[in-house]
Simulated assay, not measured.
Amino acid sequence: MALKVGRGALAPPFLVMDVIAAANARAQSLAPGEPGIIRMEVGQPGTGAPRGAAEAAIAALRAGAPMGYTEAFGLPSLRARIARHYAEKYGHAAAPAQVAVTVGASGAFPLAFLAAFDRGDEVAMAAPFYPPYANILVALGMVPKLLPADAGTNFQPTLAMLEAMDPPPAGLIIASPCNPAGTMLAPEDLAAIARWCDAKGVRLISDEIYHGLSWGRTAEATAAAFSPSAIVVNSFSKYFSMTGWRIGWLLLPQDLVRPVECLAQNMVISAPHIAQVAAEAAMDCVEECEANRARYARSRAALLAAMPGAGFNRMAPADGAFYLWADVGHLTNDSTEFCARMLAEAGIAATPGVDFDRARGARYVRFSYCGPEEDMAAAPGRLRRWLGR
């Protein structure tokens, strides 16, 4: 008799991870002297943790600190430092007790979803979207409700979309800046959505992991400043270049503090102690983080100037994050096959849009520009030669 496979095992794949594996395999197969692979498939900064973060971790290890479990919500000093960040950056008073340090933002989402929703609940999000939002919801027995967004809505949800939903969903996930399009909600639009959600009993989850990486068209704002019921997700992976340290946080509304704490105690016990030590130090490494940000800004500007000449002339505004969301419908109707050929023939790894929008993603490709600056500068030339431009 065949054994049962649980519902959670049926969650769709996160295709960018398959692209990473294919790019790794292609890189290993290159002959000596052959041009290397330009990695534009993954949102992983090409730099490591800030020097001050690494030095804090080294010092703690040399001091012989035991590095055991912390409290489920993390080191009190790190939670206090994160709370201070909200006051300094946004003018928002957040209590350290509302901060939950998590195993990356990826570890924050299941905690938030389990605390806020029940099986069968509908949770809305704009499409295109970050795939694990929907995939984690499906694994937990919840129902993603996709709101098709496009260039006309800046690839973001609108208040009109939400007001048209009858009945309202149990929750809404927003991201500003968003992955994959890199677009942002203006503060007044974020405020209107947050207040609507609070008034309608819709739990708002605001993914703010790309804060610190915006390019001046729209100001950054936190949903916590506009709604006492919103859940905010953030991470040290992007602005602080600490992807592999697996450290993030939740800023929780008061009614979910204890429920999330109980879940964290049982599911993860705590985030890694050494990563928390490094993360706290990273928050004061402003000069180095801003230098990284300046590098991304240069790469963004160079790509926006050069990519149209390579055939990629239909792109989202790229307000923030480090992605270009390119409409390639004039080049292909199969972005998966297109990206496979791009890797094999041009040596450039990028992510097919079907990972982010299953209905319309066959005509989109996401390019990440957080890799080495010289690689980003070389990419348009390779693409131009590949497409015969």
Rank of each mutant, 00 (worst) to 15 (best):
R7K: 13
L15C: 02
I20N: 13
A25F: 03
A27H: 04
Q28F: 02
E34I: 01
P35D: 12
G36K: 08
E41C: 10
G46Y: 00
A49Q: 09
A53I: 03
M67L: 15
G68T: 03
A72R: 09
V99E: 05
V103E: 11
A115C: 10
A115R: 14
Y130D: 13
D150A: 12
G152M: 06
N154A: 13
I174Y: 08
P180M: 09
A181W: 02
M184G: 07
A199N: 02
K200Q: 15
V202W: 10
G212N: 05
A219P: 09
A219L: 14
T222Q: 04
A224Y: 09
S227W: 08
I231D: 02
F236P: 00
I247S: 05
G248H: 07
D255C: 05
V257C: 09
V260A: 11
A271L: 04
P272D: 10
P272Q: 10
A275P: 01
M283H: 10
R293G: 00
R293P: 00
R300L: 02
A301G: 05
L304W: 01
G309D: 09
P317D: 12
G320N: 04
F322P: 00
G353A: 02
G353H: 04
D357P: 08
D357F: 12
R360A: 14
Y364I: 01
R366I: 08
C370R: 00
E374P: 02
M376L: 08
M376N: 08
